[in-house]
């Protein structure tokens, strides 16, 4: 065993990359749930974003355009969910699950011609001056644009929800859609916008996987990342800052177990592979033991169907 072989600085850099897809998807889902909608289709939107982004990046040779296409793709797919649950008032849980299955199949179909193709590489952006700082520089300021964007979005979503009028309206819709409706807010319209935002963020998360982290298109390559994003929203008790913490914790455990193996730590590999999932379950159990949904901070109208009766 040689733990000194593990460089903590490099470990942090890679865990940021590993955590970015789930961070983006979880942030999107956070906004969706804050508006009172439970969309379990995150996995489907991620994988659709992964292939849309990959295909467009390969065709145009520009990863940035690919990322944008991924956001559009994810948002388009989420529109199906929005139409079914907000206009036709379908059950959100069932529709979300269907969206995941649909997204996995659709992405496999779209990806037929892109298996084994190499995507254009996404450039790393070194922030001037800051990137040259000792220790902190290489760890924090030499990433690609999506990593910066994900952290930027944590701040934006936190500030918007906490301080802006838009955030207040969104939360009002999520806490009590009847009261918000009585005040004259367009509940359905606001929720559809939130769902599309969630789709776009999940799509970008998926594209980060296919364009940067792997970088390749493979059927089913999200491999459950969407479900972890959903768990992280609960883990974070619907707070943006804690979503960041949760995503990095999860990314950290995944990367650490591979590093421990490489360092020859004498632990059973099966348990190491299991550990991220075990920790997620453990956190969920501990958090839910403290009380009901209210104690967790869940939006009161989460998952409830809204029908304007008057």
């Amino acid at each position: 065993m040689d733990l000194s072989a593990i460089n903590p600085l490099v470990l942090i850099t890679t865990l940021m990359i590993a955590a970015t897809p789930i961070l983006l998807a979880a942030l999107g889902e956070l906004v969706v749930e804050k508006s009172g909608v439970l969309n379990l289709g995150v996995e489907g939107m991620m994988i659709t974003g992964a292939i849309c982004g990959f295909a467009i990046a390969v065709e145009t040779g520009n990863p940035a355009i690919g990322m944008l296409a991924a956001m559009v793709g994810g948002a388009m797919l989420s529109l199906i969910f929005a139409f079914l649950t907000q206009i036709l008032l379908a059950n959100q849980v069932a529709t979300g699950l269907a969206l995941t299955l649909f997204g996995l199949g659709l992405s496999s179909l779209l990806g037929q011609g892109y298996v084994g193709v190499k995507p254009p590489s996404t450039p790393k952006i070194e922030i001037p001056l800051l990137a040259d700082l000792p220790i902190v520089g290489p760890v924090l300021f030499q990433h690609d644009m999506v990593v910066y964007f994900s952290i930027f979005m944590v701040v934006v979503i936190w500030a918007t929800l906490k301080y802006s009028r838009l955030g207040l309206v969104l939360r009002a819709v999520g806490e009590s859609h009847d009261a918000a409706h009585a005040l004259g807010y367009k509940v359905v319209r606001i929720r559809i916008m939130a769902i599309m935002f969630g789709g776009a963020m999940a799509g970008l998360g998926g594209a980060y996987l296919s364009l940067v982290r792997v970088p390749q298109w493979v059927d089913g390559m999200t491999a459950g990342a969407g479900w972890i994003a959903l768990a992280i929203v609960v883990f974070a008790s619907w707070r943006a800052g804690r979503v960041l913490l949760g995503a990095y914790l999860f990314g950290g455990v995944t990367i650490l177990q591979l590093n421990l193996q490489a360092a020859g730590v004498n632990l059973p590999v099966e348990y190491l592979s299991m550990s991220p999932y075990l920790i997620t379950i453990l956190v969920l159990v501990i958090m839910s033991a403290k009380g009901g949904r209210a104690a967790l901070g869940a939006p009161a109208a989460l998952g409830r169907v809204f029908h304007a009766s008057s």
Binding site: A5, A18, M221, L258, Q261
Partner: peptide
């Protein structure tokens, strides 16, 4: 020789992470 088991024949994300972990440790 540093061996990392990923318990899959085909999981590009995990294989990529394993490769990164090995390279970071001096491979």
């Amino acid at each position: 020789m540093k061996v990392v088991w990923v318990f899959s024949w085909f999981d590009p994300a995990k294989e990529a992470d394993a490769a990164t972990a090995l390279i970071e440790q001096g491979v």
